[in-house]
């Protein structure tokens, strides 16, 4: 039930933001559309803690702030190496271990790796993530595992 309410609020915010017209007709059309989407989502059985991760709400903002900092730092490093040229890069393909228990934790980890420039998650099988990195240091930073620990802490 909380997941349904959360989905309803998200869809309502999306409609109100995109329409910009607040007349009775448009609002009732919006309500009908939201009801239709909720019905379809229930039939598809996708309204659960994976599509609406409410249990992360309190802990995820701190992680987003940390991720933003990481993204800015790695952007600076990648731009530096773009202008320094091909001799300074050391592309490497490596496999790292994900210690998250749930599927969603692993997906958050892989997506965070991809979102950070300089590292791209190429494949995710079991708890092994294949990562392509622009620099060997990037892989070493990932193997040190600070991002891994922070995402594991989100889960419990």
């Amino acid at each position: 039930m909380p997941h349904t309410i959360s989905l309803f609020l998200t869809l309502a915010a999306f409609w109100l933001l995109n329409s910009g017209h607040y007349t009775l007709l448009i609002l009732s059309l919006g309500l009908i559309s939201i009801a239709l989407v909720l019905y379809i989502a229930h039939r598809m059985d996708v309204v659960d803690h994976e599509s609406q991760p409410l249990h992360l709400t309190l802990r995820i903002p701190a992680f987003h702030l940390w991720l933003t900092k990481e993204i800015i730092l790695s952007n600076i490093s990648v731009v530096k190496h773009i202008w320094l040229g091909n001799e300074t890069i050391s592309p490497v393909l490596a496999t790292i271990k994900a210690s998250q228990k749930t599927d969603m934790g692993k997906v958050i980890y892989a997506n965070s790796i991809t979102l950070t420039p300089g590292t791209v998650a190429v494949d995710l099988v079991g708890n092994q993530i294949t990562v392509h990195a622009l620099l060997r240091e990037n892989i070493e930073v990932l193997q040190a595992g600070e991002m891994d620990r922070r995402i594991s802490r989100l889960e419990d």
């Binding site: 952007n75 990648v78 890069i89 979102l115 392509h132």
Partner: peptide
Amino acid sequence: LRFPDFYTRMHAVGVTDTL
């Protein structure tokens, strides 16, 4: 344009997409 292969080019696109 500058990077030597497909996977490294992907990192360059990552810069324009995020920051």
